[in-house]
Amino acid sequence: MRTFNATFVATILLSLSLVSLSSSASPVKYDSGVPSDIQAQMEADLGFMNQIQGNGQTNFHQQIFGAVSGAQYKNFFESRIKKIGLNDCGNPNAVACVIPMMGSNKMWLTQNFIKFSHPQIARLMVVYHESRHSEIAHGNWPHDTCPTPFLDANGHDMKSIWTGASLAGEPACDSTQLGSYGSSTILLKNVAMYCTNCGDKVKMDADLYATDQLGRIDRPDVKQAMINDFHGQAK
């Protein structure tokens, strides 16, 4: 009887949580062709972002997103992305993209969104990067052409991937902290520093991926301003 009662209560709780889940699901509309497991992963990832709580933020974060807060991140995403479809994004390893000529407020996810074993923060970094590309008022925040040569802090050629071609001359940089690389770097650095309900792994991941992405800022003064911002010295 005790087991039955516990099971009964758990079932009721599960049902109630389903009700709350359905009412808190994002208002983004999925195309019918988006597989349910991809939709579920996207909803789970956005659900994580939407419940973030923070105890501070940097000035650049305040300018772009507001406070470190799930409500702000939810508003940022949902005011930019209204629909989600399935696409290969023109690259066999892509995870997500925005294709302005196919609708600026639409994000496309690929099968890799659930197939590849990226940490959750990595998927979200791409999602927020792409949502920045939806802003028509800013020309979709086009990327800057990386300079030639394009070297890292140790004087090594910045490469597309460790075995790959040089990034020099590729449209894969930002000259402002407000672009897609810059804003997603600021987002993740702030999650790493100020999220109060993120676990150690999430904070580590946010820092790791943000540190890498900072390398795509090709103007030394802008990069330095971002570093100062992260250290509370932004002007």
Partner: peptide, 14 residues
């Protein structure tokens, strides 16, 4: 390796 520079930083880290 894939060779799309756009999100290769994320891929390289993963």
């Amino acid at each position: 390796p894939s060779n799309d520079p756009h999100h290769s930083g994320v891929e390289n880290t993963s």
